[in-house]
């Protein structure tokens, strides 16, 4: 499932992963490491909202 950052609108899509945080494709949002933050605005998990 995709998640959207409520601060900046960045969308985390498991199909793409997140290069800026060194996350390869295929990692679900719930499985992201605890140190992960929004790659664009550095917001933390609690600022994310489910999209699909």
């Amino acid at each position: 499932m995709r998640y959207i950052c409520t601060c900046c609108g960045y969308i985390y899509d498991p199909d793409n992963g997140d290069e800026m945080n060194k996350i390869p494709p295929g990692v679900e949002f719930d499985d992201l490491p605890e140190s992960w933050v929004c790659p664009l605005c550095y917001a933390e998990f609690d600022k994310f909202d489910p999209l699909d």
Partner: peptide, 10 residues
Amino acid sequence: SVTKNRPSPQ
């Protein structure tokens, strides 16, 4: 407490 990542182009 967890230290948060510092995202960056690689």
